[in-house]
Design a protein around this nucleic acid. Structure first.
Lengths: 165, 165
DNA sequence: AATTTACGTCAGTCTTGTTGACTTTCCAAG
DNA sequence: CTTGGAAAGTCAACAAGACTGACGTAAATT
């Protein structure tokens, strides 16, 4: 008589379609929760997720160029330009002409921009902190490993790498 | 002399703002990769992500009602109705009047609908399988735990629960 | 001098979300 | 049996944010 389970040498039970389906839905629901807090704040500022993304990456890489931002965000320049223009006009982002290469524009958050960034990221850090704390360090390491393998390899270089010591 | 590290009894280094920031960006980039494969397929069918979501959850819960779908997807009925109408008109989804409660509409995928669902989910399962395999079972368990803690608690009941024996 | 690069902008389209108003169907409680 | 309300569908208008395509300008590179 045969084993009723699918043919797998060791325990590869975590690779069944059912398990993968669960993973897919975890991605959907977790991402929804993850974006819900900032979305509420952004509503009050007549901004959207696109503004949040721009603010986030300008904050993390002050002085980044438009081209670099396009690479990270993966949208067209017209799309990015729209939100960037609003943020500049509203005084949240400053655009400075490059010194070495004057074609480039280097982007910086103003004080006001930093303030909104803090407000937005605080809600997300709070959610992440709660999840990390509840799951524990080993689970977090596993989470990281899986997430890095889900994303496109050439995007990994854009992910923040925490200082060790 | 004091410890130079922040005040934390044990090693809670995985809760620093830098670590949390990494987690936030992992969510962003992983979700982008995760949705990129289906998006390409959907383009050829003049459908979008909204259609994919509807198809996915109708498939997993054949016979589900519109109301239940609204609860899961978290959009307005007008928004859902638009994509559902297209899918019904195109013969991918069948809407049957409820027997017990004839106000309700029960939704089913047709053969054609199942075919598209398979095509879409196959690319996502492939990506998840690759990530799971590279990370290993323990990492996958950690991934699950963190993701469940990121999402809103009342959404957990909607996540597929794999059979254990 | 010619070409390429970086950026900005105008114009138009599409998907997907929203609100608000209104109708039809139908169950269930008074 | 009537009526209140829930479930579903529909129409209309609108906005965010993505897209394509074309064009312009300034600066760097070849």
């Amino acid at each position: 008589m045969q084993d009723r389970r699918p043919p797998m040498g060791e325990s590869l039970l975590f690779l069944t379609d059912d398990q993968l389906l669960q993973g897919i839905e975890l991605m959907f629901f977790a991402y929804r929760g993850f974006t819900s807090d900032p979305d509420k704040i952004l509503d009050n500022h007549t901004y959207g997720r696109a503004h949040h993304r721009a603010i986030h990456f300008v904050h993390r890489q002050q002085g980044t160029t438009v081209n670099n931002l396009l690479d990270i965000l993966g949208v067209t320049k017209q799309s990015l330009n729209r939100v960037l223009r609003q943020l500049i006009d509203d005084g949240l982002v400053e655009s400075r002409v490059g010194e070495r290469d004057r074609r480039e524009r280097h982007l910086y958050l103003t004080e006001e921009g930093i303030a909104l960034e803090s407000e937005l990221s605080e809600t997300q850090r709070k959610r992440m902190r709660k999840a990390y704390k509840a799951a524990g360090p080993d689970a977090v390491q596993g989470f990281r490993t899986v997430m890095e393998n889900i994303m496109d390899p050439n995007m990994r270089r854009h992910v923040n790498t925490p200082k060790r010591d």
